[in-house]
């Protein structure tokens, strides 16, 4: 694997407000990496620095080993898909998609051929003569993607590209985007605040908090081996408990409930069932344990558990994650 983008101690402040403190990250060629973090943590700022719309206050950005820190966006071999699409309203779908090739004065015949391929690939062939205003949100988004990938960029930056779409459409486009990435082998840098989206699409996820990387790793590592309290609580649901002097986290689906009088040795806590909520695929059971903490368990069967019942709460030792 070869590093395609390298951020070396990149810092960004607006006035005296430090948005990104010294940030370093290496991105491999062909990988799908997601920046995941709460609103305002600096994801868009990072993307804008990589694409060249914002110059870092200090530090360097390398593309393919070349320092591109102060190279303008139109000379960087990467493309961005904007959150609000930013399609040109005065051009047809075809002209929007061809824009990049026209600016680079690619020969007509090649333009035509690549347009056809991309239109076919994004299923937009029948809409090519329309103006963007005459398309649905999902179609507009596909035009934005087509307009970027027709340039065969080395890297595609996507800043919450599906943020404005409804659930079903998001799901479909997630699959399409993942396929595009796999088939074209383009490096994707993806920003989202949707964990499920990050989990299902990414090769690696970087969890960003206040401009810093909290943890970077595969979706499994991030989920099962969170390295900090922030990651443990930000990604998915987690039960955080203080045992002896350690802070530990256990995922709700790893928790089992037992009759209180069944004197199983591995009962870690006792408590009273406070609530049982049906979530469609699972039952979410809240148990108020000693020290007044609430432990959540995700069960596939409701069994005979009832509100107010006193129960034993258990989990396997290997499902504990020790948080510093």
């Amino acid at each position: 694997m070869k590093t395609i983008i390298h951020l070396d101690s990149v810092e960004k402040s607006f006035g005296d407000h430090v948005v990104i403190p010294a940030f370093s990250l290496s991105i491999q060629e062909g990988e799908f990496i997601t920046l995941l973090g709460p609103s305002g943590c600096g994801k868009t700022t990072l993307m804008r620095m990589i694409s060249g719309f914002e110059e870092p206050t200090s530090g360097h950005i390398y593309l393919d080993g070349n320092d591109v820190t102060s190279i303008p966006p139109y000379q960087r071999d990467m493309n961005m898909v904007f959150q609000h699409y930013a399609l040109f309203p005065h051009m047809t779908v075809a002209d929007n998609i061809l824009f990049g090739l026209k600016m680079k004065k690619v020969p007509q015949s090649e333009q035509k051929q690549r347009l056809e391929e991309v239109l076919h690939f994004t299923q937009l062939t029948e809409y090519q003569k329309r103006k963007p205003q005459q398309l649905s949100g999902g179609q507009q988004q596909r035009v934005a993607i087509a307009r970027a990938i027709i340039n065969n960029p080395r890297v595609l930056l996507l800043d919450e590209p599906l943020g404005a779409l409804d659930y079903q459409l998001r799901k479909n486009l997630q699959v399409e985007l993942k396929n595009i990435q796999r088939n074209l082998g383009i490096t994707f840098i993806y920003v989202t605040h949707d964990q499920d989206e990050a989990m299902s699409m990414s090769d690696r996820i970087a969890v960003v908090h206040q401009g810093k990387i909290e943890q970077i790793g595969t979706p499994e590592e991030i989920y099962y081996k969170p390295s900090s309290l922030f990651v443990a609580t930000f990604i998915g649901e987690n039960n955080i408990m203080k045992i002896n002097s350690d802070l530990i986290g256990v995922r709700p689906e790893k928790i089992s409930l037992h009759k209180a009088d069944a004197q199983a040795p591995h009962h870690k806590q006792y408590g009273v069932i406070e609530d049982i909520v049906f979530l469609g695929n699972i039952y979410k059971v809240s148990v108020r344990a000693e020290d007044d903490i609430v432990i959540t368990a995700h069960l596939y069967e409701k069994s005979t558990w009832y509100k107010g019942e006193r129960v034993g709460v258990a989990w396997a030792k290997e499902d504990e994650v020790i948080l510093r």
Partner: peptide
């Protein structure tokens, strides 16, 4: 957004203005 999108697609400042 639109001007940035144009620049991102490789249009120089003059091309962005013109197109």
């Amino acid at each position: 957004d639109l001007e940035e999108a144009a620049e991102d697609l490789g249009a120089s400042p003059w091309q962005t203005f013109r197109h």
